[in-house]
Design a protein around this nucleic acid. Structure first.
Length: 660
RNA sequence: GCGCCCGUAGCUCAGUUGGAUAGAGCGCCGGACUUCGAAUCCGUAGGUCGCAGGUUCAAGUCCUGCCGGGCGCGCCA
């Protein structure tokens, strides 16, 4: 009795040890896992486990084993009762010590609640790379998901006990950057963000679109030219062209109910859309200009570098504004213009180790059959230049060696799944154990009702516009409530109104994008993203505000008292306590599975459970409770809910409001 | 053609190392504002978990095949 656990973790450990002891006494081996989970019905108990796996070892019927085990686990300072339900053993906890430990820990730990504490030596250094924007156009909805996901998982990992470094690898060089630069030089007329009254990233993005417009016109004209028609005719005669024509004719001739889902394009259209990249690289004047510009950039041409620096400066300044508003940041920012040459020395190492080999044409490749994949991957072109994969290999190795990272997490869309699979496996070839250190936090694309987002054609949801939009909606909502005299908005000034609208709008957006598991791809519904009803950010904020309102009315934060808090004993109150007790485990699971949506889900569950008690004024009065001791206990509970909610929401990057 | 991911309520999605009666939001329908904040709360209805086999004491979860959808498979990034 003297060894009553003083923390949630100790309490669970104690329970597991009691169960383990009973299992061992019954003759089960150490390998049988103890898996305590709440029974489907609270009347059965608080935690239970099935005895099926023991049947083989003990050679007895599961219900009999359950009976024996239940008898072997005697009540103690935390276990009130042990019962069985068929093959299940169920523990009922002593509610007083249970409530005392849980609420006590929440209020004692404050913003550290749910955080894993481990010795410094055991903390791993995790590097989270996210955002990784191209400096040729502004950020869009896809980047928003990436940024929110990356920023959130970084916070979750840190809370779960890792040492986290957030890294941005800015893609600031290459053909696509030169397209914007060329368009600006040709048709920009010396404009700048100030003259154009436009954020720098948007201004540069306009030139990227402009380049594409000119290029399309050029390509269009070429298609009608003799040379274009000649190429088309050549293709139509080729086996590939013939094959396509056959498929096209067949689809055309098919009866209406047997048409294929995806109609093949008319032959000419199919050829020209497929030939676009070849045209850009072979015939296009603009393409040649862009390549020449890239060549000059690599040669360090003063004028080109100056232009590059000017445009990149504008874009990065624009990004900084967007990042700041989203509440995301980085400890390290790397630029590809600095890192793109990394990896070449690794290729040497790989050749020495014999895991890479030089092909007859001079290219250095990795035979992927070594790692269970098909084909080979080129790491150095025959002209000796490196590819994207080579840079990634070099960057990864450098992060491990120079930044002393134990683990590398890459937040990148799922269209690059294969790339990272290959990358991690080749890293493993170059150095033992590297594969296991890497994780690709892959996430699904967000589709628009019109289909896929394409920045060149302008069918994008711009990040800045999106934030303006959610802000405006939250503002309208808040004003409306002020007018109706409902909300706590009477007499607040415009500045405060705006600040609240920003928090509420961003909460709606962030929650909406983080509540889906990362791998889930979904269609972007503008209405749902700013929804305030149901499982949403504003709903969570609202319930947090309710807890704060209670404490204000009661005259401030309650001080914890173990004897008093034990007065919480209704089923609904105990459900809240149970939920609070699981938060540390939720954080750990979220970190382990790299999935912030578990935190989002948890926030909602906790809110719902609190709202149930909060609105049950007949049976659960809080501030108005006449029993002073019970009132104090419930205020502690409200404080604990608010505290936990604030921590959980902060892991999603969501700020809270005292009033809304 | 090959590889990976997905298919769960009308819609959008959860579902832990396989465990007890598969959940939530939205929508629908029906209730609840003289009382701590109705941006709320409670309740009802809604399921052959894509299909067919298999493994297991136990399968939405694991294996195989098929159907349907997405993504990828370059000396691009």
């Amino acid at each position: 009795m003297s060894d009553t656990p003083q923390s949630i973790a100790a309490l669970f450990q104690h329970l597991e040890a009691r169960v383990r002891a009973a299992l061992t006494a019954a003759g089960a081996g150490e390998d049988v896992s103890v898996d305590l989970a709440p029974p489907p019905n609270p009347e059965m108990g608080d935690l239970g486990f099935p005895c099926f796996p023991l049947a083989k070892v003990l050679r007895k019927a599961p219900p009999l084993i359950a009976k024996d085990l239940a008898a072997a686990i005697t009540p103690d300072a935390v276990i009130a009762e042990v019962g069985t339900a068929g093959p299940y053993v169920n523990l009922t906890l002593r509610k007083d010590s249970w409530v005392r430990v849980v609420i006590g820990e929440v209020l004692r730990e404050g913003d550290r609640f749910g955080a894993a504490t481990r010795p410094e030596a055991e903390r791993e250094h995790v590097l989270v790379e996210y955002s990784a924007p191209n400096t040729n156009k502004p950020l869009h909805l896809g980047h928003v998901r990436n940024n929110l996901l990356g920023a959130s998982i970084a916070k979750v990992l840190a809370h779960a006990g890792d040492r986290v470094t957030r890294v941005n690898l800015v893609n600031d060089r290459g053909v696509h950057i030169c397209k914007s630069m060329l368009a600006y030089r040709n048709w920009g007329g010396g404009t700048d963000p100030e003259k154009a009254e436009k954020k720098g990233d948007h201004l540069v993005g306009d030139f990227y679109v402009l380049f594409d417009k000119y290029f399309e016109a050029e390509y269009d004209a070429w298609q009608k030219s003799g040379e274009g028609q000649e190429k088309l005719a050549e293709w139509l005669e080729s086996p590939k062209g013939q094959g396509h024509k056959k498929a096209y004719d067949k689809a055309q001739a098919a009866p209406a109910d047997k048409k294929p889902k995806k109609m093949p394009k008319p032959p000419a259209e199919a050829f020209f859309s497929g030939y676009k990249d070849d045209y850009f690289n072979q015939q296009s004047c603009l393409g040649a200009d862009v390549r020449e510009m890239l060549r000059q950039w690599e040669a360090g041409d003063d004028e080109t570098i100056a232009l590059w620096k000017k445009l990149n400066g504008w874009v990065l300044a624009g990004f900084d504004e967007t990042y700041a508003r989203m509440g995301v940041g980085f400890e390290h920012v790397q630029y590809e213009s600095d890192t793109y040459k990394l990896g070449k020395s690794l290729v040497e190492l790989g050749l020495q180790k014999g895991v890479l080999n030089k092909r007859d044409d001079g290219a250095v490749v990795c035979d992927l059959s070594q790692v269970g994949l098909d084909g080979e991957k080129v790491l150095l072109r025959s002209d000796g230049t490196s590819v994207y994969m080579t840079q990634d290999l070099g960057t990864a190795m450098e992060r491990v060696d120079k930044l002393a990272a134990d683990r590398l997490v890459y937040v990148v869309g799922d269209e690059q799944n294969y790339h990272f699979d290959v990358l991690f496996r080749i890293l493993g070839l170059l150095r033992e154990g590297m594969t296991e250190r890497c994780y690709h936090l892959s996430y699904g694309m967000i589709r628009l009702p019109e289909g896929k987002m394409k920045s060149r054609t302008g069918t994008v949801v711009d990040a800045d516009d999106l934030m303006d939009e959610v802000h405006a909606l939250a503002r309208t909502e808040t004003e409306q409530r002020a007018d109706e005299g409902k909300a706590h908005t009477a007499g607040i000034n415009d500045e405060e109104l705006d600040a609240r609208a920003e928090v509420i709008g961003m909460a709606a957006l962030k929650y909406h994008l983080l509540k889906f598991a990362p791998r889930t791809s979904f269609e972007y519904d503008p209405k749902a993203s700013i929804d305030f009803l149901g499982q949403t950010g504003p709903y969570c904020l609202f319930n947090y505000a309710r807890t704060r309102s209670l404490l204000r009315k009661a005259g401030g934060e309650p001080s914890f008292d173990a004897a008093t808090v034990a007065r919480l004993e209704s089923e609904r109150e105990l459900e809240i306590v149970r939920l609070l007790s699981t938060f540390p485990d939720i954080v750990a699971r979220s970190a382990r599975s790299y999935d912030p949506s578990r935190i989002a889900e948890y926030c909602f569950e906790l809110c719902k459970s609190f709202a149930f008690v909060f609105t049950d004024k007949a049976n659960h009065p809080i501030v108005t409770c006449e029993d002073a001791e019970l009132r104090a206990a419930r205020l502690m509970m409200a404080a604990a809910v608010g505290q936990t909610l604030r921590v959980a929401l902060s892991l999603l990057g969501i700020d809270v409001l005292e009033e809304m």
